[in-house]
Design a protein around this nucleic acid. Structure first.
Lengths: 199, 199
DNA sequence: ACACGGTAAGCAAGCGCTTAGTAACCTGAC
DNA sequence: GTCAGGTTACTAAGCGCTTGCTTACCGTGT
């Protein structure tokens, strides 16, 4: 229960400012002066707490990807039934991308701005997400619970429709993250061709 | 059948170079020297043929959005049956985003870099696409051919899953644009809850 | 003679990042 | 309690370079 040090607080403020700026204007459209200004500090303060502007992007990207991977893993672990797994994954992945749409935009649209080493580390997390979804669809097809013309492409489509929510979602839009989660739980089942679970 | 003038050819070469560069590195990550260099010209040549870097983005965006709108309109006009319209729209919209993935990335990820006036003009074309898809789903629901818990969200999802193909599609990937088109024709029918047409 | 299609050179502004310095806060000997 | 000595968190100023774009000029075809 230790209170965070002043340095930790400042570090977090800079990261939060970077998230907002990167999501709104992109990595290359954001200046270190933007970030420092939004955090209420001088441009030099960025370099007291972080090596470079790219490191800020990497820290944001790693944390966000880890969370996204956890979301999918938790959904798979929530049930032994592939049908329930598909609904849970569709719901949770959609809710994640709606609720964390600012971070999610950075995760998916700023990959090219990462250094080669950082990009490689992020790619491993992305591969993990893809593997989870492919395994989920594979299990359902193998058990006869799913009916899809192309299981691998179905897994890609599941990831894709969730990710793109971060692009079109608006906080003042027609649907709340919960409503979107409900809809995408159903849409995931339609995508894999599952018989709806009773209830 | 007039041969294009030298100016017209150069203009097109600069636009093509801008498409490649913007898609790969984003608008802000691309320099006017990148564009001129890729077109085999000096940096000043850009300004012989175009007002600004932003104008290049606008020209690319307007042309691409017009084509995307035409694709959806043609799909709707191809049949009076909402089910066939949904399949045709799903297929054509997906094929478009796979085949023209470089342009499509610019259309969907560089909107914020447009000037206010240009952005407004592009938004009209985007609204047109949205309206077509909402009308399509509405017609199917009204005729009893579709079954979906949220028609407006279904239309959004249809657009979304097509658009995101531009993000994940790779020319050396697992699927060709035609295969993707086939799959998304079927996926569109699942999304709107249509009874598959005979055949 | 001259319009057309282009370049060489460079300007003002803005970029990521560094350096040198300072105010504010601890620590502990007395 | 207090106050020198050291540390932490930060800033003012600016460096070297790149940016979008302009200006002044030139070779070529008619």
């Amino acid at each position: 229960m230790s209170t965070p040090s002043r340095a930790e607080t400042t570090r977090a403020r800079l990261l939060e400012a970077a998230v907002t700026a990167f999501a709104e204007k992109g990595f290359h459209g954001t200046t270190t002066r933007d970030i420092a200004g939004a955090a209420g500090m001088s441009p030099a303060a960025v370099y007291v707490h972080h090596r470079s502007k790219e490191e800020l992007l990497f820290l944001i990207s790693r944390e966000g990807h880890q969370q996204a991977l956890d979301v999918v893993r938790d959904a798979r672990a929530s049930s032994a039934d592939p049908v329930e797994q598909a609904a849970a994954a569709g719901r949770a992945f959609a809710e994640f991308h709606a609720h964390h749409h600012t971070v999610a935009r950075i995760l998916n649209y700023e990959l090219a701005a990462l250094s080669e080493e950082h990009r490689a580390e992020i790619d491993e997390l992305r591969t993990g997400i893809d593997r989870e979804l492919r395994a989920l669809v594979h299990d359902g097809v193998a058990s006869g619970a799913f009916d899809t013309p192309d299981p691998a492409l179905a897994a890609t489509a599941l990831a894709s429709m969730g990710i793109d929510i971060a692009r079109w979602y608006r906080e003042d839009g027609e649907w709340s993250p919960t409503q979107i989660g409900d809809y995408y739980a159903d849409l995931a089942l339609r995508t894999v061709g599952a018989v709806r679970p009773a209830g």
